[in-house]
Amino acid sequence: MIEIINVNKVFYQGEHVIHALTDINLTIPQGCIYGVIGSSGAGKSTLIRCVNLLERPTSGKIIVDGIDLTQLSNQQLTLTRRKIGMIFQHFNLLSSRTVFDNIALPLELAGISKKAIKVKVDSLLDLVGLNDKSATYPANLSGGQKQRVAIARALSSDPKVLLCDEATSALDPATTQSILELLRKINQTLNLTILLITHEMAVVKGICSEVAIIGNGELVEQGRVGDIFAHPKTPLAHQFIRSTLDLTIPEDYRHRLLSARTEKSYPLVRLEFTGASVDAPLISQVAREFNIDISILSSNMDYVGGVKFGLMLAEFFGPERAAQQAIAFLKAHKVEIEVLGYVA
């Protein structure tokens, strides 16, 4: 369980005062996989680094398992950190140590006997599926393997909490999925609380049960993943979700785009489906009902927590009146629709 209470973080850069975090309140229940998502510079990295006090909050409390970290002496903090695992975007493995010795490091720090270390590390190598890489140096591993070693290392001191700082951002999509799979597995088998920050929607969608959106150092929205993505309440959350889906008009279309309808030109529209949109096969209904042809230019639809949402660019071919009726029909069914222009 992690409680972040009224946390503020201010950086001073000469004359400049930068409010990296403003009044952050977050409670992460035991055993939960919690995602914090935001674009770069939003303060998410600062936030996760505040949880184990790599970055000391300017004010506020960080309570992990009932202990307020901000009240601890340096020495107590060092010992308490041993119960908080952390993995990083760039893995941060020691190049001078083999896979085995990297995983053993936290145990060495705690003064565990060599024999006990061997037992523990072997079981962790099993868990992350790297038994055959025990004597390999990190330089000879792939990105995914390195992150597995980092996960094993973070787990070696039996932490209650795992912090993931952009843990999959340096990995390709397939490897990302395998790492997320591993995180889900350890979350279930060890009842480990996982706090992860990311800018990738796929990560949150993949394993988080709850999510918070951070923007400009403030938490703008938090809740269950499906709810947040389908029904963003604040403009910032809406904007963020849209930016992850964003569909831009192709260059050659942009050149051909007219601002008013002329003979032989057709509207180019952007459809936005949200959780509020009526869940029905609307596109084919519109085509049938108003006798227009719909050509989808590009589309980015997603399905999270029982809700479909996403953006679509499409051309409506047909008489002017039919197109207008179709647009009105879609609006009536709570699809946000915008005519971007007319394509000749």
């Binding site: 010992l79 950190r81 695992g85 952390m86 990083f88 941060n92 020691l94 720090l109 705690a110 973070a154």
Partner: peptide, 22 residues
């Protein structure tokens, strides 16, 4: 890389251990 020192701090290494082990 400063990330290594940070990782060591995050895993609860004392300054002396950071010097000798990292």
């Amino acid at each position: 890389p400063s990330g290594l020192v940070e990782a060591a701090q995050a895993m609860g290494a004392k300054p002396r251990q950071i010097i000798s082990k990292v």
